[in-house]
Design a protein around this nucleic acid. Structure first.
Lengths: 246, 246
DNA sequence: GGTCGCATTTAGAGCCGTCTAAAGTTTAAG
DNA sequence: CTTAAACTTTAGACGGCTCTAAATGCGACC
């Protein structure tokens, strides 16, 4: 009964909200979905009428529990599709997002279940993003930090990369930086440019990144900020606190 | 650039047109798509503006070459999806149609190609319907006849069944009547009710219909008319001529 | 060959999602 | 504390797809 478009708004609000906990601004949604702010205002009113969001005029919008469930359902579809396309239809890591973005609104519960079965109920998609469980329970807070918040000497394992930018994904893929890759920060230049030495993957499995092994890679701040990492068990690698931000 | 809805109209016109060669009536499209006739008139005007159909007021509508290509593209998507869902996602024969009807409008060329690859470029879908080739060349006339046009004693092989009615499909599936099944007409009752003896499948492969083997099945006229059959090489089984019809 | 019934089209309306232009609110800067 | 800048909402419009009600055309039957 919800339109594709409504689902997109809920997904956008979910994504923007979980990034920083605050109510989501009209303009942020507009930018994320590439529409004008008045369009967002009118859509958000409809979502409010349906009890999917709560809103305070001029302040921002938040999902209700029901709205969040819808967002999680769509997200589950999206990420299962990404995983399926990668594993069973030979899509590469970076091609998968747009296809999933279209299909996520049109698959049945049946399809969702069969895809999940075929994959063995995975917990993360190929970009390392967690796949909401079948019961659509809220996703637990994650324990990752931004690569850009680390300093020289830290050794970390890549946990997640953003799935929204094809070009960035191709670049990282080329550089051998994928979820599971161990990297060591060898330098932080002004403006947040981070240089890392690419190590071997923790779980070597499918795609070995042989030729990138040991190479040094410099990453612009924006890219380093969208890479979420987890510290290795062997070394302390806690980032300085309070460096987060937009 | 075409909307889902436009694609549905083109597909409907294609289907209705190839059933009897004549221009397609507004009311036929309306019934097929479950909308009102005025809706069809206005949509058909838009399709005409785009050069996808030709139309004579109060007479009917036909696809242009371009319109037919679009219809074939959508049909290719639909039938590849039906085949894929059946072969790789464990869907049953009768569940597949609705899922394909939704997804057909939203898959990329990429997806189409990868699915076709995974299937090995099949020529027919699970219902026996021909899958348009990648170049979308018009589909050759088929050499099948309606089961309902045959008479007592004819032995034929099921070539295609309609994919539009779940219930009918489940019924036939239960009766062991699927594409490839050999049947012998043992009686034709008044009002076209046909009774057949179900034989073994020509290509035994995947789903054997063991328990239905040799059973007799009576099929109402409407069902027998939607089953397309091909005569066996061993016996003459040409239907009476000129019995075709809506 | 007229007339009646059915098919089709025209007319007018509504909802959805979007836009631009204008008006209103909030907030930060002076 | 005033005011300007930035953000948000209101107002009004449009194209897409659908509907109902009314007008029109076609064809068949007497």
């Amino acid at each position: 009964m919800l339109s594709d478009v409504m689902e997109d708004y809920l997904k956008a609000i979910y994504t923007l909200q979980t990034e920083d906990g605050d109510p989501v601004a009209t303009s942020a949604i507009a930018e994320y979905l590439d529409v004008t702010p008045p369009t967002v205002t009118s859509m958000v009113e409809k979502l409010e009428d349906r009890g999917l969001v709560e809103r305070e005029k001029y302040k921002g919008v938040e999902l209700t529990a029901e709205g969040e469930t819808v967002a999680l359902e769509v997200l589950r579809h999206h990420r299962l599709l990404e995983a399926y396309l990668t594993e069973h239809l030979d899509y590469s890591w970076s091609e998968v997002h747009d296809e999933a973005d279209r299909l996520e609104h049109h698959i049945s519960e049946e399809f969702e279940r069969r895809v999940a079965d075929a994959l063995g109920d995975p917990e993360v998609d190929p970009h390392g993003d967690p796949i909401p469980s079948e019961d659509l329970a809220p996703i637990a807070e994650d324990d990752t930090t931004r690569l850009s918040d680390h300093t020289e000497g830290d050794t970390v394992v890549v946990a997640r990369v953003s799935d929204r930018d094809d070009e960035e994904l191709r670049y990282l893929s080329n550089a051998g930086i994928t979820p599971g890759t161990r990297v060591r920060v060898v330098g932080v230049a002004p403006f947040g440019m981070v240089t890392v030495r690419v190590g071997e993957r923790e779980t070597p499995e499918a795609s070995p990144n042989g030729e990138s092994q040991g190479r040094e890679q410099s990453l612009p701040e924006s890219v380093a900020a969208s890479i979420r990492v987890r510290r290795t068990e062997t070394e302390g690698a806690t980032p300085e606190s309070g460096v987060g931000g937009a």
